[in-house]
Every structure is written in C-alpha cells, then in structure tokens.
C-alpha cells in the first residue's frame, strides 16, 4: 500500500475520509476509505485515479449488487485493521492448516448462509482474500459428504446431465474410501 496517496494526503488521514461507491443497482454507499481499501480492487482504483479521484462522485462497481455489497462492507468494517491472511502449511506434514475463524466470523457466516455463493463471487471480484478464502472453506464444509442430489438442492443447481452421462460417471467413479 502506498504511503503517499491520492490528493497528496498521507495515508492515515485519507483513510478517515469518505468515498462514495455505487453498486450495479445504482445504490450509493458512503464508506470510509480505510474500510473500502480492504478490497484490493477498490484500493487499486483509488490509487490509479490518484489526483483525479473525486470522492463525492463515487467509484462504480458494475459486478456487485447492493444487498451483497452491504454484507461485504460488514466484513470490511470488521477486518479493516486485520493483517493479511496467509495460507499456512504445517512445516512437518506439509498439510495446509485450515483457517480458524473467530466467533464474529462464525456468526457472520451463520447469518448469511444462504448467500455464500454470492459472497464468494463478490469477494473474488473485489479481491478480499480473507472473505474469499473463508467463504470457500465454508462452502466446502457444506458440500462435504453430501450426495449430488443434496448438493443440487442446497445450492439450487439445475440438473443438466442426461441419464447416459450419469451412467458413465457412475461407471468411472466406482471408488470408495477405505
């Protein structure tokens, strides 16, 4: 992150200023720059615009809608001072450590359980590593051990496989764990 930022104002001061972000359903969100910067995508925009950044006219986000952005903002507010998360490995077993979530984070995902896919998409687009990794982990936790039918039902996936294709998949996936 650059220490000297847009408008020639140093970073801590800039972080306290407000910026307007417009989502694709034309809703305007007034956000502290320090919070918005949790998203690498928004941070890059702020830096790229530099001198020409007009804080009042806002930054457009064509790929995110209002309700989801609201939820993302909640996360950003909580994580504005959090250090960047690292994908860690156990040095002995080389096994990746699963992220342990704080109580707040667990509660956050419980609240928005039905929006996990949207959150993953938004976090991916906005480049918020913490939200992205945690959401993917949550999704994986939900998929684990479920049958294809259950997965389809849970996430509202359309079954577009023909009977033949399903039979073929069954033939080639005749594995079980032992």
């Amino acid at each position: 992150m650059a220490t000297e930022s847009a408008n020639g104002v140093s970073s801590p001061e800039l972080n306290e200023r407000d910026v307007v972000i417009t989502t694709n359903d034309n809703r305007n969100f007034t956000v502290k720059i320090g919070v918005a910067r949790v998203s690498k995508t928004i941070n890059n925009m702020i830096q790229d615009l530099g001198e020409s950044l007009d804080l009042s006219s806002g930054i457009p986000l064509p790929n995110v809608d209002g309700p989801i952005f609201e939820k993302v903002l909640e996360w950003c507010e909580e994580h504005k001072n959090a250090p960047e998360i690292k994908v860690e490995q156990d040095p002995h077993t080389r096994e990746r450590k699963w992220f342990t979530m704080t109580e707040w984070e667990e509660e956050y995902f419980r609240k928005f359980l039905s929006h996990l896919w949207d959150l993953a998409m938004a976090a991916n687009y906005l480049e918020i590593p913490s939200l992205y990794y945690y959401t993917c982990q949550k999704l994986a936790e939900r998929i684990k051990g479920r049958t294809p039918e259950q997965i389809r039902e849970m996430f509202g996936i359309e079954d577009d496989l023909t009977e033949e294709e399903k039979a073929e998949i069954r033939r080639t996936n005749v594995w079980c764990t032992y």
């Binding site: 993953a120 982990q137 936790e141 996936i157 359309e158 996936n173 079980c176």
Partner: peptide, 20 residues
C-alpha cells in the same frame, strides 16, 4: 477450483455428478 481444493476425492466425484 478453490472450493475443490478443500474437498477430498470422494466429494469431488460427487460434485462431478451434480451438473455439466
């Protein structure tokens, strides 16, 4: 792919059977 990386082989094979 990221979600898949959290899942074991059996779960991935089940996911394969959900949609194209």
């Amino acid at each position: 792919a990221r979600i898949g990386s959290h899942l074991n082989a059996m779960d991935r094979m089940r996911l394969q059977a959900t949609c194209r």
